[in-house]
């Protein structure tokens, strides 16, 4: 049980995912939500690499994780560009205050 195996990595990933989901739900700050998204992406990446190492073999898991990292950077860039633009428009990045759009 103490010896580290696939399940250990998967449990860490599961916990990371849950914390990310919690962060996304409870944050009001847009940048905070983006941080939660990064946690979720990292959780998925641990899964990919762990599965590759322990059960699938080959390179697919690592390659998939690399693409995820690249896209996460792109997503962060565009997300933060939008956050800055909104901040300049509203002087606030509180997503609950960005409420001109509602029914």
């Amino acid at each position: 049980m103490l010896h580290v195996g696939l399940a250990h990595f998967l449990v860490v990933a599961a916990a990371l995912f849950s914390l990310g989901a919690f962060c996304v739900i409870t944050r009001k700050n847009a940048v905070g939500i983006l941080m939660g998204i990064e946690l979720i992406l990292n959780a998925a990446n641990i899964n990919f690499v762990a599965f590759e190492h322990y059960s699938a073999g080959g390179l697919h898991g690592q390659v998939f994780a690399l693409f995820v990292i690249v896209l996460a950077a792109a997503e962060a860039a565009i997300g933060l560009a939008i956050v800055l633009a909104l901040f300049h428009a509203l002087r606030s990045i509180d997503v609950t205050r960005a409420a001109e759009l509602k029914e």
């Binding site: 399940a7 449990v11 599961a14 849950s18 919690f22 739900i25 009001k28």
Partner: peptide, 23 residues
């Protein structure tokens, strides 16, 4: 925090479900 209650529920539900699946 906004909606700490729902957040905690989601956290625990995800954690429980995914840990069972993973382990």
């Amino acid at each position: 925090a906004l909606g700490l209650g729902p957040g905690a529920v989601v956290l625990l539900a995800c954690l429980g479900l995914l840990t069972v699946v993973a382990g």
